[in-house]
């Protein structure tokens, strides 16, 4: 049962689309103990309807800031997430400030270029879980704290 369900999910070739804009840098500062923290307002627009099949219970989606620093080869900081319970909610546009704190391990964020990545995890009614992402590049933080 489980195997057949997973197998049929493999036959679905989805074509999701997404776009994320940074509408505002709300504030940007160095914490007393030395880590940079920034607060952003985002506009997230996506159409993930094609990810739903008969075996899909829900989608878990999140937007992460991804960047490298001299100390860390990879930093992934989740900024916002949501659960999409059904296909009719899979096409949306939302205005939001970051739900989780965007804090660096260190003070490397001034003028930092980073990617915003929309990840989705398809949670099945039964069987294998799927995950994929859309990477959007070319975002940049301000040169000065504000």
């Amino acid at each position: 049962m489980c195997a057949i369900a997973s197998l049929s999910d493999n036959l679905n070739t989805p074509s999701p689309a997404a776009e994320i804009q940074i509408l505002n840098i709300n504030w940007f500062q160095k914490q007393p103990h030395g880590n940079d923290e920034v607060s952003l307002t985002l506009n997230i627009t996506a159409d993930l309807q094609s990810l739903f099949t008969w075996n899909t219970k829900q989608l878990f989606i999140f937007v992460a800031a991804e960047y490298d620093t001299p100390k860390n080869a990879l930093n992934q900081v989740s900024l916002w997430d949501a659960i999409i319970p059904a296909k009719e909610f899979a096409k949306f546009s939302i205005h939001t400030s970051n739900k989780y704190r965007f804090i660096d391990q260190g003070h490397n964020l001034r003028g930092k270029e980073f990617n915003l990545t929309l990840h989705w995890h398809v949670m099945p009614k039964t069987g294998k879980m799927f995950a994929d992402k859309i990477v959007m590049s070319g975002y940049r933080l301000p040169e000065e704290y504000r």
């Binding site: 878990f60 999140f62 490298d68 001299p70 100390k71 860390n72 080869a73 990879l74 930093n75 992934q76 900081v77 989740s78 997430d81 989780y100 391990q105």
Partner: peptide
């Protein structure tokens, strides 16, 4: 639980 943040070291991994 789900992973929401990852910081991976350049030198040691």
């Amino acid at each position: 639980h789900r992973v929401i943040k990852v910081h991976e070291r350049e030198d040691t991994g």
